[in-house]
Design a protein around this nucleic acid. Structure first.
Length: 927
DNA sequence: CTCTCCCGCCATTCA
DNA sequence: TGAATGGCGGGAGAG
């Protein structure tokens, strides 16, 4: 140490804090970062470097001061810092030189000392920001790293934070704040290049918007909620959630193979191992153009991934793959991947500083992985300050190279706008925004078009009235064929209606061009039962958002029912309307029936009343119906039938409601059909803290929700004629039944009755295909997922308890697991072993969410011949099979059982996902 | 070693 | 045409 000590000039020594100088005057090099490795150099060299640096720094400071005065309002080109080779001009460059000369810490201290000795304290902050920071940092072990412009201190996130502190988070209405990039760069003492990075991301969330060269308008976070909502709507419309889920399945399966040597056949059968070119098909994820690689657009896509994911956690690898559009990209070799990761780090750091995301660690099969979790405003809950306007400040802003929300340069948006213009002659009356706050920033040459678009959007918002021409046209077209206007719509989907769809027990029916809403009796929404799954936007808002983006949305006849149709994950289906939204208040109270159209490409009506649908629905001829459809229905429970508070008259018809997003020309990317969405569905709605009695009450008082998913298999491995139905029946806030039954359209005639809880009678009727699946080569399975404790009929007489004993080690050793359950009425315990980790994609926040599915593998399959291709069956031994009873009095034997174990895959640092809820998956023969 | 991500070259876009 | 932007990847700090 003494040797090193001798190399340190006295003036540097004196600048060291006491913390680094021992009582005997000897420098404690252990507390001087980098000193050990860098301080061995000639004193003359050090002094020379210091002098050069000091002189240069002073020169730089003077220049900056002059420029600062000069550039108050001018747009200027940054000084070319490379004009002086060998003579770095910027502090950063100086420091780089210094780093080679001596410890940066020592150098900084020397600088600080010189700075503060030569100048008074009136030096502008911009001149000595770093120094000031350094001076005031207490010298602690943690703070040591902050001495000097360490790498962390120069991080983009920190820089962004400093940027944000320069302007009000929520500026007053009408307050116009302009940003000069030069000033900011000067203020923050960074290169312009870094400012561009920050501004681009801020622009992507509409915190700023560009108004002219070198000038931006500051909006703060006033538009943040709206922007996020738009991103979510766009992501939903593009069904990115499904894609993400598919990719997660794919990744999970691959890891499964790597770790355990086998993948899940069902996932494979559902196409999870299909190539992921679909990620590149979407224009939103098309990286072909330079502008599509913009940091801002990338930021929006990145945010979108969070907004549509369940849970809102994604890792960079997954994001990069999605953004690149190649799931098989080599993450270690591929330069493209590395670059993408770099950019995502940049974005993530900025978004982190915006408190939109935070870094977490996710434990997966292969271990702990870093990831980011969305922590921004929850746009899934009511109360979100989402305005009807494109932007909350009334400024129709999204017109930039760096926004996928750009409705000017986005062709699809433009086409939609044109279509609306053609079909809707209207005078542009603007009601958006606050009249006194319509600040429009004109940067784009197509500003006029921008205004036109804004007007169109406004009209669209206003056109929610029943007499909208567009609506009328669309609504009148209910013959199953595409109307001209529909065909013109540049949408990804198209409407395929089923005329005359009827559903029993409907309290109201809504028919629109692309949607059918089936309403049943209203059921009172108990405050305590408010679901965590709330869609914050009204239908009008969603429509407006979708229209402003690129997704044609149905024009509703009755807006009272529209708020329920936002495409969103099943979790969010519990729609509790926000009272703050006028015109939808009634809906709020009676969200009895929800038809959720999850697949925008295939708006096909599905009903659980086969006898009515069947005749009007042509028998499936395989490829005759290239549609995927999901319809979610909620049926009022008998006890609630008398409480009809619905203002909507009963109407025994169903309304097809589906977004017309299918691309008529381009075949829709095939979608995997799997249980994932349902399993992950927080719609299970386990209310934390809710007790059993409450659930029981709810079970009786509330209606059941049935989600029917009819989809053409997205897998290349299965027959194209295969069709499946998934039904999720929410029996209460705590119980969900999921039945997956490949059916033909005429096969939904034999509902299965599931006996639940204390309900003595029928609770659920599920269409079960009979005798069709084998002929059609379909997977003959009926899958029911029951939460822990749910009871099933056994032999049509007994309720069978299915207690699941979970071992905490299960998640870590999924290969060999034995589960045993028994019926209280039966002395025959049933067990199965050799369960297989099936899926990890369903980790959701909240109690009862499922992330990992364990199901038995085929080794002990005892499936009956009717079990078809399904290869999983429990070892039921010699005991009597467990049956599900169908409505016709027959019984459907259960052929397999699986268990949903607690979510273990995703574990944030606070372990908020470590619930031990579980459920049972029962597979039965459908014949 | 991998993970992060700063840095600035230089291509592209803009005015 | 020069200035304004910003894509990109080398390479180094951090862990």
């Amino acid at each position: 140490m003494s040797q090193v000590d001798n190399l340190i000039p006295d003036h540097i020594k004196s600048s060291l804090s006491e913390a680094e100088v021992d009582s005997d005057g000897e420098i404690n090099m252990d507390r001087v970062p980098f000193a050990k490795n860098t301080i061995r150099m000639d004193l003359k060299q050090i002094d020379k470097s210091l002098k050069a640096m000091s002189a240069q720094q002073n020169k730089e400071n003077k220049r900056n001061m002059m420029e600062s005065d000069e550039n108050q309002n001018r747009t200027c080109t940054p000084v070319n810092e490379t004009e002086h080779p060998g003579q770095p001009l910027t502090p950063t460059a100086n420091l780089k030189v210094l780093f080679n000369a001596m410890s940066p810490e020592l150098r900084n201290r020397d600088e600080q000392k010189a700075q503060y000795s030569d100048e008074d304290n009136n030096v502008s902050l911009s001149q000595d920001y770093e120094f000031e920071t350094i001076i005031e940092v207490p010298i602690t072990a943690e703070a040591e790293n902050k001495f000097g412009p360490s790498r962390k201190e120069k991080s983009l996130g920190l820089l962004c934070q400093r940027f944000l502190t320069m302007y009000p988070e929520y500026p007053e209405k009408g307050e116009k704040i302009e940003i000069c990039l030069d000033e900011v760069a000067s203020e923050l003492q960074v290169e312009r290049r870094r400012i561009y990075d920050i501004v681009n991301v801020l622009e992507s969330v509409e915190i700023v918007s560009r108004v002219a060269k070198n000038r931006y308008a500051w909006h703060g976070k006033r538009n943040l909620g709206t922007t996020l909502a738009k991103l979510k709507a766009l992501g939903d419309s593009e069904r990115f959630g499904e894609q993400i889920q598919k990719l997660k399945d794919f990744e999970f399966n691959r890891e499964l193979e790597e770790q355990f040597g086998r993948s899940d056949p069902r996932l494979k059968a559902n196409g999870v191992d299909a190539d992921f070119s679909i990620f590149g098909e979407s224009s939103l994820f098309n990286q072909a153009l330079r502008k599509d690689k913009s940091l801002g657009i990338m930021s929006q896509k990145f945010l979108m991934l969070f907004l549509v994911s369940k849970p809102k956690t994604v890792n960079l690898d997954l994001s990069a793959k999605l953004l690149i559009g190649d799931a098989n990209i080599d993450r270690t070799e591929n330069a493209k991947f590395k670059t993408k990761i770099r950019r995502l780090y940049d974005i993530a750091n900025i978004l982190t500083s915006l408190n939109l995301i935070k870094k977490v660690h996710v434990t997966e099969i292969r271990g702990r992985k870093p990831a980011f979790k969305y922590i921004g405003p929850d746009i899934d809950v009511p109360g979100t300050d989402v305005q009807l306007t494109c932007c909350s400040d009334g400024c129709h802003r999204p017109s930039t190279r760096h926004s996928i929300l750009d409705c000017i340069q986005n062709n699809r948006v433009a086409k939609i706008i044109d279509a609306y213009k053609e079909s809707t002659p209207r005078s542009s009356s603007s009601s958006e925004g606050e009249g006194d706050d319509k600040v429009r920033f004109s940067r784009h040459s197509s500003f006029e078009t921008l205004c036109a678009v804004a007007s169109v959007e406004t009209n669209k918002l206003n056109s929610s009235a029943p007499n909208s021409p567009v609506k009328g046209d669309k609504a009148s077209d209910n013959k199953g064929a595409l109307s001209d206007s529909e065909a013109k719509l540049p949408t990804r989907g198209f409407v395929r209606r089923r005329p005359g769809l009827k559903v029993d027990d409907l309290s109201s029916v809504e028919k629109t061009a692309d949607a059918i809403i089936i309403k049943t009796r209203p059921q009172p929404v108990k405050p305590a039962m408010k679901q965590p799954t709330i869609i914050p936007l009204t239908k009008e808002q969603i429509d407006a958002v979708l229209r402003s983006l690129k997704v044609p949305v149905p024009v509703k006849k009755n807006q009272l029912t529209d708020a329920t149709t936002q495409s969103s994950p099943p979790v969010d289906d519990q729609m509790v309307m926000n009272e703050g939204y006028e015109g939808v208040t009634e809906v709020k109270e009676e969200q009895q029936v929800e038809m959720k159209e999850l697949n925008e490409k295939t708006p096909v009506v599905m009903s659980n009343t086969p006898e009515r649908i069947g005749p009007k629905r042509p028998a499936p001829t395989g490829d005759s119906i290239p549609l995927e459809k999901r319809v979610k229905l909620t049926f009022a429970s008998p006890s609630s039938l008398g409480d009809d508070k619905s203002p909507v008259p009963m109407n025994p018809e169903a309304v097809l409601r589906c977004k017309k997003t299918a691309d008529v020309v381009k075949p829709s990317p095939q979608r995997a059909l799997h249980l994932t969405p349902e399993f992950s569905n927080p719609k299970v709605s386990l209310v934390p803290g809710g007790d059993a009695s409450n659930m029981e009450t709810e079970e009786r008082s509330q209606g059941k929700k049935i989600e029917i998913v009819i989809s053409e298999s997205g897998s290349k491995l299965v027959s194209p004629v295969r069709r499946s139905v998934q039904e999720v029946v929410q029996l209460s806030n705590a119980q969900t039944i999921l039945i997956q039954s490949p059916i033909s359209t005429s096969a939904t005639k034999s509902p299965t009755v599931v006996h639940l809880g204390s309900q003595p009678t029928t609770i659920l009727q599920l269409p079960v295909q009979q005798g069709q699946q084998q002929r059609l080569g379909q997977m003959a399975t009926t899958t029911i997922t029951l939460p822990q404790g749910m009871q099933l009929l056994q032999n049509g007489q007994h309720l069978m308890q299915l207690p699941i004993s979970l071992n905490s080690s299960v998640p870590n050793s999924p290969r060999v697991i034995t589960y045993t359950f028994s019926s209280p009425q039966s002395s025959h315990p049933t067990s199965f072993t050799n369960a297989q980790l099936l899926s990890n994609q369903n980790s959701n926040k909240g109690v009862g969410n499922l992330s990992t599915l364990i199901r038995p593998v085929a080794s002990k399959a005892t499936a009956s011949p009717q079990a078809g291709s399904y290869n999983a069956a429990p070892s039921l031994g010699n005991q009597s099979p467990i049956y599900l009873r169908n409505s016709s009095g027959g019984f459907v034997p259960i052929s397999s059982v699986a268990v949903n174990v607690p979510k273990v895959i995703v574990a944030s640092s606070n372990h908020s996902h470590g619930d031990l809820s579980s459920s049972v998956l029962i597979t039965g023969d459908t014949s």
